[in-house]
Design a protein around this nucleic acid. Structure first.
Lengths: 134, 134
DNA sequence: CTGTATCCTGGATGATACTG
DNA sequence: CAGTATCATCCAGGATACAG
């Protein structure tokens, strides 16, 4: 994000490039934004495959919401639902290769979240006000 | 009897690591999540400093929302509001160094959003259904 | 266990009008 | 230009109960 100032001639190009970037980020937010989708994928990447497992790992999510998020994730090609007929019927969700495309993004977000927590913690010990969920 | 649960011993460690990652992502989402914050920062990184400039670049945002988002971004140390007394008073918002820490994340999200749009476009031309904002 | 069905609320966002 | 005020709306998500 280097400063891009005064380019009268290039302004239009800048605006267009900016628009493309904004559209891309907007797209991404539309598909994987919200409180839960990335967290579900992360939990699944750690080996959680069963509905209840995922719900236990992703603290705070309700069954209703988890159910609907899983459906959206399936529709968008991130996961599959596998039903094994047996006693009892076993249902598992599995990540599809497309979910791997999120790896870089997830890594970046994890790193940022961790450093931000550290930063806020440091500020708090200096008396500034900051919000951190405990 | 296939697939017994891998590492009984490491399971706890996995769960803990997973929890940390989830917490980090949750933190990040809390601060920069939502529809607008990243987009505002991106627009500002492209040189937009004035309220109206930003509003024009970030298509669809209302004055009320932009105003409130700018305040939150300022509170979280991403930007400053600068008021130049003169005729007329000039108000500009500037990115602070802390906003640079988002660069990697923004880059990753931009890349992903672009490739996702391509993917959906490709699928649509194959007759599958996918949603893409036009 | 894996969900679905309801009901409900707060917060996020939109629309519009107005002010210094 | 840079907002604020107000009102209306929508919907993600929570709580709970129930079902296959």
């Amino acid at each position: 994000m280097s400063g891009t100032e005064e380019n009268q001639g290039e302004n239009k190009a800048f605006t267009e490039e900016c628009h493309k970037v904004l559209m891309a980020v907007s797209d991404a937010l539309y598909v994987i934004g919200g409180k839960w989708k990335l967290m579900i994928i992360i939990a699944m990447a750690r080996g959680n495959k069963r509905f209840t497992e995922i719900q236990r790992q992703v603290t705070g999510i309700s069954a209703r919401v988890l159910s609907s998020e899983l459906k959206e994730l399936e529709m968008n090609g991130f996961i599959v639902k596998k039903v094994e007929n047996g006693y009892p019927v076993t249902i598992e969700y599995e990540l599809l290769p497309y979910s791997d495309t999120l790896e870089e993004l997830v890594t970046a977000m994890t790193k940022w979240g961790m450093q931000h927590r550290e930063k806020v913690k440091a500020e708090m010990s200096m008396g500034k006000s900051g919000k951190l969920k405990v």
